[in-house]
Design a protein around this nucleic acid. Structure first.
Length: 598
RNA sequence: GCCCACAUAGCUCAGUCGGUAGAGCACAUUCUUGGUAAGAAUGGGGUCAUCGGUUCGAAUCCGAUUGUGGGCUCCA
């Protein structure tokens, strides 16, 4: 598993290793300087918190008016003055009472002061500005060499949506101006790779106001990709012993009540519709339906493990502000499966799923991801989580064992589990830097009981199956969103919406070009014949922009010799060759889902 | 859902102090038949997101709604 990296902690680790532990101090100090600047420009400002973060810092303020983009340069200028004045950062220690007196006009600081367990509190002073802070800081404001304020955003105090919304200013800070420029250039590059931009340029998907937010429409190019991905899933899951099922998009209220979705998941569900006195819900997950398939006849331990798979379409009512391109939508098609097994089969099944993930990630050349074990929090029992503390602890331990025995690295986060059990989420980052769960592998000890699922064991007694929910390819929406960014739109041949562009040089080459296109089409290749009376340059440019892996340019020479000239998407030119040899190569590359072009 | 910003042709964007809309690309037609990232001309295309208000007059000012974006919260 080379290339595996837990980038959650990555930046910190790298910094420490590289002997650059100072940069965090610089960023944190920059936050203090920004706070001082804001205080001097907006007297009466109430301060929240201002930590260092990846690439920079932020500080939360309660201000008399809303900030605008025009305020940032003013704040920056003030900061530059403070930096240039070369004021030292001075640490002072004091008692809780002294701190309370010092921050008497700062309600947010008072709240923090009261929650600090130690009796000795520390504050840092630079010039006229003093802030409650653990430190450490740089010695002098002059040590802050390069910073820039980036944007303004709203943020709830202490991340709690029931508490006041403060105004947050984000900044970046590095040791040198050059690093800032490089960082901004990286952001620009990220914008070019943004799946929303590429998805539009490559005609993959669109959103329509009349259809609704978060409800993507797949254009022909996107639909072609979806079909390839489903083909991949069907073949792979068949090899791994899954059987396929199909289920409706709706079910009666009672099903979701028994499964636990209505008590624990209702706020993410579309409201019910009522017909002939019966309430129906659109499904937010496929599991209840699959559980009914499991329960559709008596099951023996000999039937287990039973692996039911379906690319099921689900609908979740995500809050409007949470929608994000294809990465966060309201209708989604999931690479779903539920594995019903005995407890003694659990470890093997669970590990099998993890290895299935790794198989897929290798295929897609996905190297930057992290496996996150999400566990429950005792405080959420009966609210967010099914109330069965023993089973939570037991299944969490089972998952840890399954991971450890297979030497699979992971990190653990409490209070992130599904309502029915712990899970392993595979975390990836969008090119914008936002983190998403791409795939998931969840244990479910609750629904079998809630839904009354049993099997007859070796002793002829009824027993509850354990259930594993898994979606290694996540949803089409998020996977394709991710792959767009991951490949920058230049997909491997098998996945590329347009695989071959046939480009005749002049009209007299059209017949030959057409016969090539027809033959490729009969091989199932997605081919486009560009028959327009445009220049060769123009047609090649078009094919390049569409990121066609292959361009077949045919003119007098090719017609005369019955050959083709192949230009790769990389700009590379293959030697002139008989059409049949290209056709053969293409067949192999697609059949093996190779990432290479030749 | 919350804070802030934005919404002009299919796409990317101009549009000054309010005086009934422009460019490039794309598309269509014609000319051109050109050998590896844009040949030329002509043409069609916009209720300036929607609704309301201010004004003699609104793309422009104000309000609401819808949608999008940056965050927060939440998540596949």
């Amino acid at each position: 598993m080379g290339g595996f990296c837990l980038w959650r902690r990555w930046s910190r680790v790298v910094i420490k290793k590289g002997g650059e532990q100072d940069i965090e101090k610089v960023r944190h100090s920059a936050a203090h300087v920004m706070a001082e600047a804001v205080q001097s420009l907006f007297p009466g400002t109430k301060f929240g918190i201002g930590p260092a973060i990846e690439d920079g810092f932020y500080y939360d303020f309660e201000l008399p008016r809303a900030l605008t983009a025009e305020d940032l340069p003013l704040i920056e200028t003030r900061m530059a003055e403070i930096v240039a004045s070369g004021v030292p950062f001075v640490r002072e220690e004091m008692s809780r009472g002294e701190a309370r007196a010092l921050f008497a006009a700062q309600p947010y600081k008072l709240e923090l002061i009261d929650e600090i367990p130690e009796d000795k509190l520390s504050v840092y002073r630079q010039g006229a500005f003093v802030d409650l802070c653990r430190g450490p800081h740089v010695a002098n404001t002059r040590d802050i060499k390069a910073f820039k304020l980036i944007n303004i955003a709203g943020a709830y105090w202490r991340g709690d949506e029931h508490r006041p919304m403060l105004q947050r200013i984000y900044g970046v800070a590095f040791h040198t101006e050059k690093e800032i420029e490089e960082h901004l250039a990286r952001l620009e590059e990220a914008k070019r790779r943004d799946h929303r931009k590429l998805g539009k340029e490559l005609d993959i998907f669109t959103f329509d106001d009349d259809v609704g937010p978060g409800l993507p429409l797949w254009l022909p190019n996107g639909a072609a990709m979806i079909e390839e991905i489903e083909k991949l899933a069907v073949e792979t899951e068949f090899r791994h012993g899954y059987v396929r099922v199909r289920t409706p998009h709706l079910a009666k209220e009672d099903l979701f009540r028994r499964s636990g979705h209505l008590p624990y998941y209702e706020e993410s569900m579309y409201p019910p519709m009522e017909l002939e006195g019966v309430r129906y819900y659109v499904k937010p997950m496929n599991c209840p339906m699959h559980h009914r398939i499991f329960g559709s006849r008596p099951r023996s331990y000999r039937d287990l493990p039973l692996r039911l798979a379906e690319y099921g379409t689900c609908y979740r009512y995500e809050k409007s502000g949470e929608l994000f391109g294809l990465m966060r939508v309201r209708s989604m098609q999931m690479n779903d499966s539920h594995i019903y097994c005995m407890e003694k089969q659990f470890e093997e099944e669970f590990a099998g799923v993890i290895f299935l993930y790794l198989e897929y990630f290798k295929l897609f050349d996905i190297k930057e991801f992290a496996m996150r074990l999400s566990t429950h929090a005792p405080g959420g029992l009966g609210k967010k989580y099914v109330n069965n503390p023993e089973l939570w602890l037991k299944t969490e331990e089972m998952v840890r064992k399954a991971l450890d025995h297979n030497h699979i690295p992971y990190y653990e986060v409490a209070d992130e589990a599904a309502f029915y059990g712990p899970k392993i989420d595979v975390q990836i980052k969008s090119v914008i830097g936002r983190e998403f769960t791409l795939a998931t592998n969840q244990v479910d000890f609750a629904q079998a009981e809630r839904c009354g699922l049993t099997f007859v064991n070796e002793e002829g007694k009824e027993e509850r199956p354990l259930i594993i929910h898994r979606a290694p390819l996540g949803t089409h929406e998020r996977l394709i969103g991710f792959l767009l960014e991951h490949y920058g739109g230049a997909f491997p041949v098998w996945l590329a919406p347009l695989q071959v562009a046939v480009i005749p040089i002049a009209d007299r080459h059209l017949d030959y070009a057409r016969s090539l296109a027809t033959q490729l089409k009969s091989d199932g290749i997605r081919v486009k014949l560009d028959a327009r009376s445009e220049s060769v340059n123009y047609k090649i440019r078009q094919a390049q922009l569409e990121k066609a892996p292959y361009m077949l340019v045919v003119g007098d020479r090719e017609v005369a010799a019955s050959t083709i000239s192949v230009r790769l998407r990389t700009g590379e030119q293959l030697p002139s060759q008989p059409f049949e040899s290209f056709r053969e190569m293409l067949r192999t590359i697609i059949a093996t889902r190779s990432g290479d072009l030749r």
